[in-house]
């Protein structure tokens, strides 16, 4: 298990290899569909994402005694951001993306070029992952985008995942996809009678 603390340096990120478990601590920023589109179209960014981690996550957050309490915070499917991600990595200096399901060629190349990694958290494991959230330091775009799509600034301790796309341009998903393509060919040969 490699441990990383915010701000994340290019050197630390480049040492991570596909298949390695990683634990993140410090600040992370949630970012989903609306925010990616907003930033991609040149919209205002209220936080500094340089050397930061973005978390593809739309949490359930409750207001209690004037503080925000994160109840559930698992990852959402990352691939929907594929069109926006490469430019945002380059423009904002994002070092770590946490999400689920992996991303495409553009992001793989941007990770290699800019020194960024993609970390797969366990999808659906919202209760477990919410335990890593210590506090909410700020929220932006809550009224405009709603609870799930807002930019939540989370302070986390030991947010865990596996490095699935590294800064050397390797992708775990590409390997699994190719292997499963070969397996599919075999399975198709052994059909059922009409």
């Amino acid at each position: 298990m490699k441990t990383l603390r915010y701000p994340f340096t290019a050197a630390a990120v480049k040492e991570l290899a596909v298949g390695e478990m990683v634990s993140l601590s410090g600040r992370v920023f949630t970012a989903r569909d609306r925010l990616h589109k907003h930033l991609y179209e040149g919209g205002r960014c209220p936080v500094n994402l340089k050397n930061g981690a973005i978390y593809h996550c739309g949490p359930i957050v409750l207001r209690r005694d004037r503080t925000w309490v994160v109840r559930a915070a698992g990852p959402t499917t990352s691939l929907r951001q594929e069109a926006y991600m490469p430019r945002l990595i380059a423009q904002h200096g994002i070092r770590v993306i946490v999400g689920k399901g992996g991303m495409g060629e553009g992001t793989r190349q941007a990770c290699a070029k800019c020194g960024c990694v993609y970390v797969q958290a366990v999808g659906g494991a919202a209760a477990l992952l919410a335990e890593a959230v210590r506090s909410v330091s700020a929220v932006h775009f809550l009224r405009e985008f709603g609870m799930a799509e807002a930019l939540w600034v989370l302070e986390v301790e030991n947010l865990r995942g596996v490095v699935a796309m590294d800064a050397q341009g390797r992708s775990l998903y590409r390997r699994v996809r190719e292997r499963s393509r070969r397996a599919l060919r075999d399975v198709l040969r052994n059909g059922v009678k009409a």
Binding site: C57, G58, P59, I60, R71, A72, A73, G74, T76, V122, G123, G124, A125, A126, A127, L128, L129, A130, E131, A148
Partner: peptide, 20 residues
């Protein structure tokens, strides 16, 4: 992690997944 998550959600009355 999925099994741990299920146990935690049940114990604390927290949604299993944030996408309800």
């Amino acid at each position: 992690s999925m099994l741990q998550n299920a146990a935690r959600a049940r114990r604390d009355g927290i949604p299993i997944c944030q996408d309800t």
